[in-house]
């Protein structure tokens, strides 16, 4: 019913306030879902610690980190008041520079997540080694495209093809990259986006028409 109202609001401006209200309620429920997720995490790790399952020590680390972050953020621990209203102690931002939450984010969460993504550079390199053993025409196309883009983005492509005559300027690495990105890559990306859009639209319609109720736990 709510989804139908969202759709109908497109055709009738009178329904748009209801649609906007439903969108705000959705945001609130999404935030409550985060609370639910946090509660679920808490319950899961408390059980692991209580029963001293394998790796319960790491569950304890997760629990302590979770509770500390939660307390620091909810109590605005170390957050100075807002500049315009210094007489209101709670008016400052919860992630103001110098607060405990800011400290936890800057010195624990941010470096760990960045390092984990950086770690993938090594695994991507090994994946590249496997992918670049071109055994078919398709793999060869992927290999050549990736090499051209990498050469261009690393800057080496510029001097590598600097000696080409003006008549062959379209064959420089930077020109090839422009053609690949502007034509071939755009065409492929566009087809993928259209395909995804059709899939999402079909799934949404199935839900709105009541043909798909798997989200309620049924087998339909």
């Amino acid at each position: 019913m709510v989804g139908t109202v969202m759709l109908a609001a497109l055709f009738s401006p009178k329904l748009s306030p209801i649609s906007n209200l439903a969108e705000t309620w959705f945001n609130i429920l999404a935030a409550v879902a985060f609370l639910l997720g946090g509660t679920s995490l808490f319950v899961h790790h408390v059980r692991k610690v209580n029963q001293q399952e394998a790796g319960w020590g790491f569950s304890l680390v997760t629990l302590v980190a979770f509770l500390l972050t939660l307390l620091a953020g909810l109590l605005k621990w170390g957050s100075p008041p807002a500049e315009q209203t210094p007489e209101y102690a709670w008016s400052g931002s919860y992630q103001a520079e110098g607060s405990v939450l800011w400290w936890l984010y800057t010195y624990t969460m941010q470096p760990i997540t960045a390092s984990m993504f950086a770690l993938l550079a090594f695994y991507v390199a090994s994946a590249a080694f496997r992918a670049f053993r071109a055994k078919s025409l398709e793999a060869g196309i992927l290999l050549v495209t990736a090499i051209i883009i990498l050469l261009d983005r690393s800057g080496d492509g510029t001097w590598l093809t600097a000696g080409l005559p003006p008549a062959a300027s379209g064959l420089t690495i930077s020109s090839l990259t422009v053609t690949i990105m502007g034509t071939f890559n755009t065409a492929g990306q566009r087809a993928i986006i259209i395909g995804i859009a059709l899939g999402v639209a079909a799934t949404s319609l199935r839900i709105l028409l009541g043909l798909d109720r798997s989200y309620l736990g049924s087998d339909d």
Partner: peptide, 13 residues
Amino acid sequence: ALVVGVSAGFAMV
């Protein structure tokens, strides 16, 4: 384990 706890707490805050 640390990043899981901090991320979950941060998202809730």
